[in-house]
Design a protein around this nucleic acid. Structure first.
Lengths: 89, 89
DNA sequence: TTACTAAGAAGGTCTTAGCCA
DNA sequence: TGGCTAAGACCTTCTTAGTAA
């Protein structure tokens, strides 16, 4: 267990990434990370070792097509509601 | 403008705090911060100078009675939906 | 190929000591 | 009283260099 395991971000990120059919490294590269750091950084986010800043979360939310609020939502029932939301962008 | 102004947290925190009728310092003390640091820390969060970690956001969400997802929600329309959500806790 | 980790480098937040409205 | 800020102390994340599944 990582030290940030109290945050819902790791598990929600994993679900959204798997739904998109991407590897940790591929997702990191798509988010603009260097090839040499994409894999460990995305892994650290997903394992809860480190927490990404909001700029990174915003980038990941665009790639994975989920609202930023999803990653920080503690309640599963509310998380489902958030996933049904489609912005007018 | 703070360096974290791309995050919705500062403005949403301000709204939730004002709705609860609390000063920045009072809210910080209620969240367990030392009296000597409560005021600058809460101000830095609200001005977007620094970002609180998730543990602090969780504590604030309980005091202010809003889901944690609210603080990270970019879309105003979705934010309203999140505020209507009541957990079964 | 994908997932994962330790440890030092790098960059962030927190505390202190105040001023401003 | 409440809101706010600079700057150094302190603590976190990011990069490197790999190993494990």
């Amino acid at each position: 267990m990582g030290k940030h395991s109290e945050s819902p971000l790791p598990s929600r990120l994993k679900i959204a990434r798997k739904t998109a059919g991407l590897s940790q490294e591929k997702l990191g590269i798509m988010a603009g990370l260097d090839e040499s750091t994409a894999s460990p950084r995305m892994n650290q986010y997903e394992k809860g070792v480190h927490a990404p800043d909001f700029r990174m979360v915003k980038t990941l939310s665009k790639i994975l097509k989920v609202p930023t609020a999803y990653f920080y939502c503690e309640e599963d029932e509310l998380a489902k509601i958030i996933l049904t939301f489609k912005s007018k962008g």
